[in-house]
């Protein structure tokens, strides 16, 4: 009896979490603009979506910005973590505290502070300022995922590598990097998701002509409900499900291979 109530509770919870998404998808195929009445199947909102140059541009900017900012912040974060690992304790505490600021600060405070910086130094806001802002808020996460890996690494292996004749660069490339790889990958994943999802910081740090999907959705939703947004949402949900499916597949293959090896 108790079990049944628990199942019911979880069921209601998932209804709460997923009903909005299903409604969104359902009405993307609606013929009329109404979101309350079903008046027949149609793909016209998708056609409208693909005709919209603004949305295509926004999609392009979102992806390119995420790729650039993830690459740069992963490399910058990893290199910096290596440095921070070796600097004096006092300096390390200072750097890490500053590093924490973008993480605990409300997005909107980070956003306006960067906006003021750009305008003060006369940097025209646009795509590049958006990318710089994304690098700024994702690098701290990379550092925070890489640093614990370095701390738990056996420091003797670096000495062993150099004793055996490795140059410092070789030691980093062949010993340290493989050791901290899981941290680097986790950091890169966080950076990518944060960049794709960001709204507030991009909103304040880009020009009118350059938008990302979040800004575009915000502007469309502010003007009122329109099924083209639903069509966009449906495509994004489909993309995510596909992504999860592929990652799961790869993960499972990996696991079964490991089992076979044993």
């Amino acid at each position: 009896m108790v079990k049944r109530y628990q199942k019911l509770y979880l069921g209601l919870m998932f209804l709460f979490l997923y009903a909005p998404i299903f409604v969104l998808i359902f009405f993307s195929f609606n013929q009329s603009e109404s979101m309350g009445h079903w008046s027949g199947f149609s793909l016209k909102w998708y056609r409208e979506l693909f005709r919209s140059e603004r949305i295509q541009n926004a999609f392009f900017y979102t992806i390119v910005c995420a790729i650039i900012s993830t690459t740069v912040s992963t490399i910058l974060g990893t290199i910096s973590a290596l440095g921070i690992y070796k600097i004096t304790k006092k300096l390390r505490e200072l750097v890490l505290n500053v590093n924490y600021l973008p993480i605990i600060n409300p997005d909107i405070v980070t956003a306006v502070s960067l906006m003021i910086l750009y305008i003060s130094i006369g940097f025209q806001r646009g795509f590049s300022t958006m990318v710089f802002a994304h690098i700024m808020f994702s690098t701290p996460y990379v550092i925070l995922t890489v640093l614990p890996r370095l701390n738990t690494m056996d420091p003797n292996i670096i000495d062993a590598a150099t004793d055996l004749g490795a140059t410092p660069l070789q030691a980093v490339r062949k010993v340290i990097i493989p050791e901290i790889m899981p941290g680097i990958i986790a950091g890169a994943l966080i950076a990518f998701t944060m960049s794709i999802d960001d709204f507030v910081i991009s909103y304040f740090n880009t020009a009118n002509s350059v938008t990302n999907l979040s800004i575009e959705i915000y502007n469309m939703a502010r003007r009122g409900v329109k099924p083209t947004v639903n069509a966009l949402a449906t495509l994004m949900v489909a993309f995510i499900i596909l992504f999860v499916f592929i990652v799961n597949k790869i993960g499972n293959n990996h696991k079964s291979k490991e089992v076979l090896k044993k």
Partner: peptide, 12 residues
């Protein structure tokens, strides 16, 4: 799923 999309869903 984008936070703004989920919020938009509640508008509907």
């Amino acid at each position: 799923i984008n936070m703004l999309l989920r919020t938009y869903a509640w508008q509907i």
